[in-house]
């Protein structure tokens, strides 16, 4: 018997190349469930991705039209795709080093423009594929390959940044919260405007071994024990929230979408010419 969701994958690439217990596989699994339950035809999806472990979720595994782009530029490519094909679901799945580190500027300005992309940022807190270099989200207590004597940088809170930049939908969940994450993915795909989910994921190979959690399940149990819903954290001090994962929906609002505004202007000028 074969899993009925395998039909959404490129079968010749299976089993996946992800490490044992990697969270990217869970995101792939949930994405297949969401597409199946929303009854979206994979032909109407264009996935765009950059470089990194989580960029392997759409390319090569998820079987839809895929752009595997240069490092950090996934959102720049996706902006072009969305403007030319506004009727398609343009979905960006990439990692924290790709979207927040190297492509940070593209992320902020896509959120500011409120262009109708769906972005799933798989945050594993490190550059996992290249051997564990420090990323913009690495907690300051963790020693990495490039900060072996201690990390003096403070981590970036990407979901809060994107919410402040003006996105329509922003949420943060972990790979342990599969039911919440599945619901949030559905909301993000159906929401008009820039929708963003930060998915805190486990990386047993590059991150887990540096924090004493060598198996995927150890980090999942950490997510389970140290997650707090965003509704319960108001009024708490910063030192109380140290090491906690604040999950939940940060923002949902209605703003003018970029492509709609662009088409409105085009329509005005087309009338003027006549």
């Amino acid at each position: 018997m074969e899993n009925k969701y395998v039909k959404y994958l490129r079968n010749e690439t299976l089993p996946t190349e992800f490490c044992v217990g990697c969270g990217c596989g869970t995101v792939l699994n949930l994405f297949c469930h969401v597409i199946d339950e929303m009854q979206i035809n994979p032909d109407d999806i264009i996935t765009v991705t950059g470089i990194g472990c989580s960029s392997w979720i759409p390319s090569p595994y998820f079987s839809a039209d895929t752009l595997h782009t240069t490092h950090g530029r996934a959102i720049a490519f996706a902006t072009g795709v969305k403007v030319m094909k506004p009727g398609k679901h343009v979905i960006v799945i990439a990692g924290d080093g790709d979207l927040a580190g190297i492509g940070g500027n593209h992320l902020i300005h896509a959120a500011r423009r409120n262009i109708g992309l769906t972005v799933f940022l798989v945050n594993n807190y490190i550059y996992g594929m290249t051997g564990g270099q420090v990323s913009p989200t690495t907690p300051s207590t963790v020693n990495t390959a490039t900060t072996p004597y201690g990390n003096v940088e403070q981590p970036m809170q990407i979901a809060e940044l994107v919410a402040a930049a003006g996105a329509s939908y922003v949420a943060r969940w972990t790979t342990y919260h599969v039911f919440h994450l599945k619901k949030a993915m559905k909301e993000a795909i159906s929401k008009k405007g820039f929708s963003f989910i930060e998915i805190c994921s486990q990386c047993p190979t590059s991150y887990g071994k540096r924090v004493g959690k060598r198996e995927g399940i150890d980090q999942l149990l950490d997510f389970k024990e140290n997650s707090m819903n965003i509704q319960n954290v108001s009024g708490m001090r910063e030192d109380e929230l140290e090491g906690k994962y604040i999950v939940g929906k940060l923002v949902e609002r209605n703003r003018l979408e970029f492509v709609d505004g662009l088409l409105n202007i085009n329509a005005q000028f087309a009338e003027g010419v006549r």
Binding site: T16, F18, T26
Partner: peptide, 10 residues
């Protein structure tokens, strides 16, 4: 089924 990283649980 939902958390399996390899889509192996049916």
């Amino acid at each position: 089924e939902l958390i399996c990283p390899e889509l192996a649980v049916i």
